[in-house]
Structure formats: C-alpha cells, structure tokens
Design a protein around this nucleic acid. Sequence first.
DNA 1: TTGGAATGTCAACAAAGCTGACGTATTGTA
DNA 2: TACAATACGTCAGCTTTGTTGACATTCCAA
Lengths: 168, 168
Amino acid sequence: MNDGLPPQMGQSLLFLTDEQLRKGIEAMFFAYRGFTADPDRILAQKSYGRAHHRAIHFIHRSPGTTVNNLLSILGVTKQSLNRVLRSLIEDGLVASTVGQRDKRERHLHLTAAGEALERELSDAQRDRMRAAYRAAGPEAVAGFRQVLEAMMDEETRHHYEAMKDKPE
Amino acid sequence: MNDGLPPQMGQSLLFLTDEQLRKGIEAMFFAYRGFTADPDRILAQKSYGRAHHRAIHFIHRSPGTTVNNLLSILGVTKQSLNRVLRSLIEDGLVASTVGQRDKRERHLHLTAAGEALERELSDAQRDRMRAAYRAAGPEAVAGFRQVLEAMMDEETRHHYEAMKDKPE
DNA sequence: TTGGAATGTCAACAAAGCTGACGTATTGTA
DNA sequence: TACAATACGTCAGCTTTGTTGACATTCCAA
C-alpha cells in the first residue's frame, strides 16, 4: 500500500489508495441495492419492474418529452423502451400525444394514475434518501454529490446537468 | 418548498428538501451507470456479465468462501449464482474444492486466470473511481462514503462492515 | 438412525436488455 | 416535386440474470 510515496504525501493522498478505492466500490454496490429496494418492492406488487420506474420518473421530470429524448436519457434501445412504454400506456399511466409542430414525434405525459404511482415510488425512495442524508449531515451530502457527478460519463453528466436546475 | 419552516431552520435543513433529494436520486442513477460502464465493456468481449464480475470480486475478496456465504452477500438465489459459478468453473477461472471439516460445503478460489480477469476488471473500475475521488477531494470522499453507508439495508451493512477492514 | 442442513440439478418462466429488419408517417432538402 | 432522413412502432429472435418449485445427494448432529 501507499506505493512507496514519501510519508507526508501518503498522508494527504490516503484516500486514493487501492484499499480506499475498493471500499468505495463496495459501498457503491451495496448502497445501490438499498437505493432500489423500496421502489422494487412496490413495483413487484404491481408486476412492473425497474425499467417502468425509470420511464415514469423521467416522464414526470420532463412532461411532454419525446420518445427519442427519453431514449438518450435512459441509454437503452427503442425496442426495450417501447415494451415498457406500451404497457404503461395500455394501463393508462402514460399518455402519448402526436406532436403539434412535428407530427412524427410523440409527447409523453403521466396521467393522474401515473402521477399517483410516481408519487408512491418517489416517496419511498426519498424517505430512504432523507434518512441517509439526515444521518450523514449536509457536508457529507455535498461530498456525496460531488463524487457521484465526477463518476458519470461525459454524455450522461450533460443529461444530469440539463435537468438539475429544473424547478419541481 | 421549505415546508413553511422559519427561514433560519430552512437554511440549515436545505439539503433535506424534496428538490435536493431528487437530485441525489438522479445522481445515484446516472453515476451507477458510469460505475459499471468500464467493467461491462470488458466483460462483453468475454461474453460474461455483471453477475460474473460480482462473483469474481467477492471470491477475490474472501478466498475460500462458501457458496452459501457468497449467496447472502450477493443477495440472489442459489440457482442464479450456480449458473454463473458453473460457467466460471468450466472456464477455469474459479476453483471449487470440497470442504475439509464439512464436506457438504464448497470453498471457492480464483485460479491464476481468474485473478488476472479480476485485476483487469478492478483496475478499470478503480481508475474511474480514482479520477472521481481526485476530482472531488478527500473531504467529499468521506461524505460520499457516509451517505452510501447510511443508505444500505441493515443486513447489507453488516456484510459491508464485515469485509471493510480486511487487508488486501 | 433419522431429521435437517448444505449443495446441486432440472425445468420453466419473466424482466429487461440487445440486434436486425421492416413499415409508415412526416419533414427537410436538393 | 421527388428523395433522403427522421421519429416512431413493431416483429422476431437471442442473451443475461433473476425467480419458483421439485427433487436428489451428502453429511452432520441430536
């Protein structure tokens, strides 16, 4: 460990040792399970999956978004998204309307029922997030966000930044 | 927003608003994609998946671990793990040996080839982690870990803590 | 010696990703 | 006005990774 660096350097760069990085990797793996656990439980009862949750979340965030836009945010193929979207539309959770300016586009919105499910899911997920934030404190939260943002792919970060400052 | 709290309280609890929590949720989602992107690319070439990576990672971390122990760490069914394990054993990356004390148990080890793949995967993942850590700085990293740990399920945290302090 | 624990296997299935091909409507452009 | 490109949907087929359920084997322990 410490890679043969002089001790005073080793001290200031301690957080970059392989050991520290490994702990971060494992923390990320285990935490992500907790992160998805509560929504997963709710979705399982309704025979939906995580893919439905993601679609619902981002349609809620960007009402009227097009299929193509959603595709690039989610980073999946249109066939994969379409399967999810179809079931959500059939079940009356999502409404798809033909574009005004460009009639090739479909604009996606949550229906009242869709909004209700969105709230149920995000309430559960927020509850856990809130507990974690409260336990860790505001400075830890700032660091948490900094590291996560630095971990994203370039393109992904653009999507993230783009919807970061949209008001609720 | 701010829930009608007095302004001085709203200030100190700003990090607990729904808006802040939503950003954290989205950061977690987008960052996890980056987190798995590099290993995924390597694994795809070798026609393995994330499940193989996870098995390899934790066998590396706990050489000689039993199937049952691995099962509870990974949180999947034995049938699911077994399929992954079988292919790794067939391909000569993992060795399964009958237990000495308890001959029902199988103890799992990485072979030389398994260790080589483990190193390739974790090098890639650590590189990204290191870049993120370096960009964010040591205090951010401490906060990052605090929040992640608080986000885990109770049982999961036990697994995490148990292998946290094992030396490399 | 019998019950239960640990492991493994077979079968069947589902969610969610992928590729490739094709059809249709619409739009922009040469 | 033709033609190419775009946006979307769909069909078919495949893969990975998870799930249940049923059942056999081996072995420890009461």
